[in-house]
Design a protein around this nucleic acid. Structure first.
Lengths: 122, 122
DNA sequence: CAAATGATTGATCATTCATTCAACTGTATT
DNA sequence: AATACAGTTGAATGAATGATCAATCATTTG
């Protein structure tokens, strides 16, 4: 439990509205939750990963196909697929030499949809 | 209009499933849209900005209050508020020396909500 | 007017991160 | 067994970025 005094110590200013700060502090989720949230959005913050996720909404695809679609090397795509695997946003199946990737989260489309609402209003 | 041949030129592999690539290419949004989408999520990808946005869901706050709440300097907060202003996610009003910030987008809460759904399922 | 204070800004530094390149793994084909 | 090919991996490089620090702006107050 951090006290107001502790916080002031770390920052360079006075509390102007102590009541507001205390009220908001009581309602904020745990720092860990917000850190995980930021980490999730970090995955969506790169256009290559966004394009991969977008493509997989329409069909499962192998690494080569994605590379051709996006005009990038297999290596670059493979590196990005790694992040997407680690955050469990995509899954894969092997068929011989070929690895097929597909979406692994029903929320991906929803997050996309909300984001597009904002973008399309610019 | 890019041709399949052009894409292969830029990458290091063959098209394995030309039909799939063509079908998906036809359904993908414009690159510019996906770039804007990634830029939007980039704003959400830093835990300081996420915490600021989260706090502003509960109350408008001045820079000092946010700094105290998060245990950071006014300067650091002010820099991040700048990104949030530029992407029109927050708005502000001045009252004398004090600048009060608040949310400026109804979609912020929705994007948060979808993100939290994913995070809480880990 | 001068001092104090809330806030912003620009430069700097350290860190993070996406792509490239080369090497390597595993599977299929001949 | 040898070759070819889909895919992965690790190191290296260059670009992007967040916090710090000092300087500055703007408004209020003595």
């Amino acid at each position: 439990m951090r006290s107001i005094a502790d916080e002031i110590e770390k920052c360079d200013c006075n509390v102007i509205h102590e009541d507001v700060v205390e009220k908001v502090r009581g309602q904020m989720p745990e720092d860990e939750v917000l850190l995980n949230l930021a980490d999730l959005f970090k995955v969506f913050s790169d256009s290559t990963r966004v394009r991969i996720l977008c493509a997989l909404q329409y069909s499962e695809m192998c690494v080569c196909d994605i590379a051709v679609l996006l005009g990038m090397t297999k290596s670059a795509i493979s590196h990005q697929l790694r992040s997407l695997r680690q955050t469990r946003l995509v899954k894969y199946r092997k068929d011989g030499k070929v690895v097929y990737y597909s979406l692994d989260d029903e929320h991906v489309s929803n997050v996309f949809a909300q984001g597009l609402l904002h973008v399309s209003e610019q």
